[in-house]
């Protein structure tokens, strides 16, 4: 049974000459006929060698010995003939042609990406953080400290006995509450807006800056701040943050890999900000635990946060909206501290 005759071009693979031919389909048998009725090919059609249908592109069929056919199919008549001959589109091809399927794929994509972002990447980073060799984390932390020492930090101006006293005070508090968390306390000085700060580096190094010591009136507040940083150490937050950044970067790369790297980095930055907020809350809870175990009130830490917030506002730095901030809103954190202090 003949399902149709279709004009097209034949290329023999030996020259680039385009030969006008007519292609006929009889069941699954394809026959190519040249001008003057000369029969050229006749063979069983292999579905894998027929190109998929695009709206305005011709169908390209690879025959044996490098022979190619190019069959215009603007009206889809050849496609219907192929389908009638049992050469139907693959599931993926059908999905691509069918709008509802494409929309469903888009919806699925959004859901998978959201799930990977919210659950997948943090879980993977968490899993990996405790399986990487300890030396790896230590190495990163050391490199970061060397970098900071060269660029930003200066040696601490605090008297040695004050340093020793603070180290001692915090060590006994940490020992009492969380004896199994290993850390190292370093004192540094820094000028400018970063001066009043404390940070936890990968590998357990906690850096306390002079500016922060100068700002606090009560050593209980300092113990609170250092306990917060110890929370970051205990949770391997720096390493997990790093791994999550890499993971979100890989996700963004998959999505926007063929687009400008600027665009690819936008979700990356938001990803980093989002994750650190979860870690800050966790570190706050950890700090509260240390304070509670030592019978230290959370009020000094609460007052200190209020003071930090006032100074930031005085300098004219408007607080960014919560979803853009690396720390949870101060009000929210202080609220939690006051609740804990009141218990």
């Amino acid at each position: 049974m003949t399902t149709g005759a279709f004009p097209g071009f034949r290329f023999d693979g030996r020259t680039a000459l385009a030969q006008e031919v007519v292609v006929t389909l009889e069941a699954r048998t394809l026959a190519v006929t040249a001008k003057g009725g000369i029969a050229l090919e006749r063979m069983l059609l292999d579905p894998a060698r027929v190109s998929e249908r695009f709206a305005a592109a011709p169908r390209v069929i690879a025959l044996n010995r490098g022979v190619m056919l190019e069959i215009p199919d603007a009206d889809g008549r050849f496609d219907r003939a192929l389908a009638a001959a049992g050469i139907a589109a693959t599931p993926v091809q059908r999905m691509q042609r069918f709008w509802p399927a494409a929309v469903a794929a888009l919806a699925g994509l959004v859901m998978i990406m959201a799930a990977a972002y919210v659950y997948g990447v943090p879980a993977a980073a968490h899993w990996l953080a405790w399986r990487l060799p300890a030396g790896f984390e230590q190495k990163i932390g050391d490199a970061v400290l060397v970098e900071l020492d060269e660029r930003t930090f200066k040696p601490s101006a605090l008297p040695a006995e004050r340093q020793a006293a603070l180290t001692q005070r915090f060590a006994s508090a940490a020992r009492a509450a969380v004896p199994d968390v290993a850390y190292r306390l370093e004192f540094r000085n820094a000028e400018g807006p970063t001066g009043a700060n404390a940070l936890a580096l990968p590998g357990g190094t906690i850096v306390l800056l002079d500016g922060l010591v100068a700002m606090t009136h009560d050593d209980d507040a300092l113990v609170g701040v250092l306990s917060h940083e110890l929370g970051h150490v205990a949770g391997k937050h720096s390493l997990r943050q790093l791994l999550q950044t890499v993971g979100v970067g890989a996700l963004a790369g998959l999505l926007w890999g063929d687009f400008s790297s600027v665009i690819a980095n936008v979700p990356l930055a938001f990803g980093v900000l989002h994750y650190s907020r979860a870690f800050e809350r966790e570190a706050d809870e950890f700090a509260l635990r240390v304070l509670r175990e030592n019978g230290i009130s959370a009020h000094p830490l609460d007052d200190f946060l209020g003071e930090m917030d006032r100074r930031a506002r005085d300098k004219g730095r408007a607080a960014p909206p919560a979803f853009l901030s690396t720390h949870p809103p101060t009000d929210e954190r202080r609220q939690r501290l006051r609740e804990a202090a009141g218990q």
Binding site: T2, A5, F6, P7, G8, E20, V21, V22, T24, E26, A31, T33, A34, K35, G36, G37, I38, A39, R42, P58, P72, A74, D75, R77
Partner: peptide
């Protein structure tokens, strides 16, 4: 049937009739 079709088909002249580009 193949031979019969082949006899009929003169590609250039049949193009329009066959609805080809």
């Amino acid at each position: 049937p193949r031979r019969r079709i082949a006899d009929d088909l003169e590609p250039g002249s049949l193009r329009a009739e066959l609805g080809g580009a």
